[in-house]
Design a protein around this nucleic acid. Structure first.
Lengths: 153, 153
DNA sequence: CCATTTGCATAGCTTAGCTATGCAAATGGG
DNA sequence: CCCATTTGCATAGCTAAGCTATGCAAATGG
């Protein structure tokens, strides 16, 4: 791969495609296999709520870059699991604030334990350099995610 | 991130989680936004067929690590789009061989053009080193994908 | 020749996303 | 103060994508 990153656009295209395809495959296999059940977005929402305390539905939708009705549905499923609850927003009768429950925290911990457990042993077999490469790639993919589809691209 | 990759398991767990979450987010944003329509698995199947010529449904399912009925459904959708066709397998009356059509090749090219076009400009802004990091990360994620969930783990 | 295995399809479910639309609460101009 | 607009969320209805369980026809083998 190192021989095609210096000169022309076709190398960029190839990298763009490979990155997209590989990340999708990896996420599906690492995050979904063995029936953890919910999507990555669900866990991201829980993780957000774990730190922020509570948030409104539309704010969650914006953060995760999904449409508002999609987030409504996800929150409903999470509420049905007992992982979040909704309370009326003081000062705005339309809005409701979504907060994580104790069960939600427990489920999140469990998910983290399982998901990490599936990937960790294979990470452990890599060299320090390869692990650092992956860690840096995570940062780069986060940057790219934010830039792609951003209005000010 | 570089300060936590040397000593204990919590660093590995953190990397495992971040890698899973970030790759999922990236794939969703890069591959799905702007309504390319089908999933990454669909395009991977087309790409496989482009190179292999034709394959059986169960072989495609194994390659993509999905259940056989899932692949049946995907092949039906692709067939409905006119992107693949099915012909009876000579020598095995139960099986049918799936092959890509000219329209399928065109659709695949179009997808590649769009998907690469969305990511490429942002890749172009990175340094050579960062691009090489991503290219190496692609290889590593492919390795990890193959090892995770493999019977002989 | 019949029992088992194999390849694929179907049925029925859940998750997950989308757009379009509805409704109630908040906001703001006249 | 009243009414039109905006805003926050829910609902309806669609498609895609995955799963398990099951059915059926063709191949295989004792």
């Amino acid at each position: 791969m190192a021989e095609e990153n210096e000169d022309n656009a076709s190398g960029l295209d190839a990298l763009a495609l490979e990155l997209t395809r590989t990340s999708g495959r990896f996420a599906r296999i690492a995050g979904r296999t063995a029936g953890v059940g919910y999507s990555l977005v669900a866990w991201r929402v829980l993780a957000d709520l774990e730190q922020s305390g509570s948030a409104r539905v539309s704010a969650l939708a914006q953060q995760q870059r999904v449409a508002q009705p999609s987030m409504t549905g996800l929150v409903q499923r999470l509420e049905h699991e007992g992982w979040v609850n909704r309370s009326p927003d003081p000062g705005d009768g339309r809005a409701s604030r979504v907060a994580i429950t104790e069960q939600g925290r427990a489920a999140l911990d469990e998910y983290r334990r399982i998901a990490a457990g599936r990937v960790r042993p294979h990470l452990g077999e890599l060299s320090d350099f390869d692990r650092a490469t992956l860690a840096r790639a995570v940062e780069l993919m986060q940057q790219l995610s934010e830039r792609i589809g951003d209005p000010r691209a």
